[in-house]
């Protein structure tokens, strides 16, 4: 009795998943973790310390589809020859790879503000790290909750 009961529940659960929540993203062969992200960040900074602040990462807390998530980064910097942002790296902890994008800025950028769209495999924290012309590193982060579309591609 017990066996058939659980079989029914299982089938129901499978149907519910199929109808309501769609197919889950296929598990990639590799996957970033907080550890591999830390390693990627270390490569980016050369192991230098990272301070909190000056970097504002804007990304919606709740996104409808992880395939195209708008993000923008603004860094508090005068963007002069003497004092400007050189690089902004975007990192994640749950996609197949920890790196997302690196922006290279110059004093001729005028304003340290950039935007793009990224893929998010799952709900996670995204980190933006800026390298300043004086060699210091600053960071900001944001949490993103990814909901799945109800009806996925066939």
């Amino acid at each position: 009795m017990k066996t058939s009961q659980s079989a029914i529940l299982t089938r129901r659960a499978a149907l519910a998943a199929g109808a309501g929540l769609g197919a889950f993203a296929l598990m990639p062969t590799a996957r970033a973790t907080p550890e591999t992200m830390a390693a990627a960040v270390k490569t980016f900074t050369g192991g230098k310390p990272i301070a909190d602040g000056r970097v504002k990462l804007e990304i919606s807390l709740l996104v409808e589809n992880g395939n195209s998530v708008p993000l923008s980064v603004t860094v508090d910097s005068p963007m002069t020859r003497q004092d400007h942002v050189k690089r902004i790296g975007i990192f994640n902890e749950k996609n197949p790879l920890p790196e997302v994008l690196t922006f290279h800025l110059t004093p001729r950028s005028g304003r340290a503000q950039v935007a793009s769209r990224m893929r998010l495999n799952d709900t996670q924290f995204i980190t933006a790290i800026a390298e300043m012309s004086d060699g210091s590193f600053w960071s900001g982060k944001a949490e993103v909750i990814v909901t799945m579309p109800a009806c996925v591609e066939e």
């Binding site: 790879l97 997302v100 110059t106 950028s109």
Partner: peptide, 24 residues
């Protein structure tokens, strides 16, 4: 002729890559 902005993209950048930046 002078590079004012560049970017390194990884597979996590969305299809039809969109980039916005500034320039003097």
């Amino acid at each position: 002729g002078e590079v004012v902005f560049s970017a390194d993209l990884y597979p996590a950048v969305s299809a039809n890559p969109f980039l916005s930046f500034n320039m003097v």
